[in-house]
């Protein structure tokens, strides 16, 4: 197994506040890596650094490609992380293109591939070139992910009119349409009912089977313990544990982070209790 994402000595400061300090971890290719921790541990900040929404104060974020070359994500402009680094993400507060249909959302996700086929738009405006062919392919890819997320019936409806669970799945489908090597999910199970949560697990495993690695932030220990291969635990911006689910479950530092200080009332997030 090879290393896909390598975060080393990541530091993120906001003014005087250090949200993430000297964090290092790796995510392996083909793994589901979970980042957990109590509220305010800095999980989303780490995510925003990896996906280019924040520029890290210090440290490196490296993507190892299959051809052994590497790409320094922390040096890329925000949009290029998805385009060149092939890292896709979802958001804690769902961000869909609400006034566009489900299918349109998935087409926008394939923007770069489609745009390359338009001959600087000029040819495609005139109806020339191979755009039509590429677009048909894009629709096929969109259909595949619609099928995988159970949204085929709603393809022509505006995204904002979908129920919450479907919006979450659509966001994942949209991210997958960018054809990523690493999919970062920010609390994908938040607000889902148990059945939807089960379906989500199946979907994530399917994505992994299709060759895309996952990095997820999650509160729902049911999801984390069941599907992750590797767990990183953060507390107050620092890594306090790193290992397989079985190890994490019994790690005293993790237990005390969740229970010990008494400043966290998030009972659901207690790893032991979740079992």
């Amino acid at each position: 197994m090879t290393c896909l994402l390598e975060v080393s000595n990541l530091v993120m400061r906001f003014g005087g506040l250090t949200a993430v300090s000297r964090l290092s971890f790796t995510a392996m290719r083909g793994d589901i890596t979970a980042v957990i921790g109590p509220n305010g541990a800095g999980k989303t900040t780490v995510f925003n650094c990896i996906t280019g929404f924040y520029r890290p104060s210090e440290g490196e974020i490296i993507i190892h490609r299959e051809d052994q070359s590497t790409l320094a994500l922390h040096r890329l402009p925000g949009f290029a992380i998805a385009k060149r680094g092939r890292v896709a993400r979802t958001f804690q507060n769902i961000r869909l293109f609400g006034g566009m249909t489900v299918l349109e959302n998935l087409m926008v996700a394939q923007h770069n591939r489609l745009q390359a086929a338009t001959g600087f738009t000029l040819l495609a405006v005139l109806g020339l070139g191979r755009y039509r062919h590429v677009e048909a392919e894009a629709v096929e890819r969109a259909k595949y992910w619609l099928e995988a997320t159970g949204l085929t019936d709603r393809a022509d409806e505006p995204a904002a009119s979908l129920p919450y669970g479907a919006q979450r799945r659509l966001e994942i489908a949209r991210a997958m349409c960018t054809d990523p090597v690493l999919l970062c999910l920010d609390e994908p199970a938040a607000g889902l009912n148990p059945r939807e949560s089960e379906e989500l697990n199946a979907l994530l495993l399917k994505i992994r089977a299709a060759g895309c690695s996952l990095l997820l932030i999650e509160h729902d220990m049911g999801v984390v313990m069941k599907i992750s291969d590797h767990i990183i635990v953060l507390d107050h911006g620092k890594k306090i544990a790193d290992g397989a689910p079985a190890d994490i479950r019994t790690n005293p530092a993790v237990i005390s982070a969740y229970l010990g200080d008494g400043d966290d009332d998030d009972e659901d997030a207690v790893p032991v209790a979740a079992q």
Partner: peptide, 21 residues
């Protein structure tokens, strides 16, 4: 075309656009 769809997507949510490359 992709460009026009990107315009509309931009109107809907700029941050999501960025995350899609």
């Amino acid at each position: 075309l992709p460009m026009g769809r990107a315009w509309e997507a931009l109107r809907e949510d700029e941050i999501a656009c960025r995350s899609l490359g």
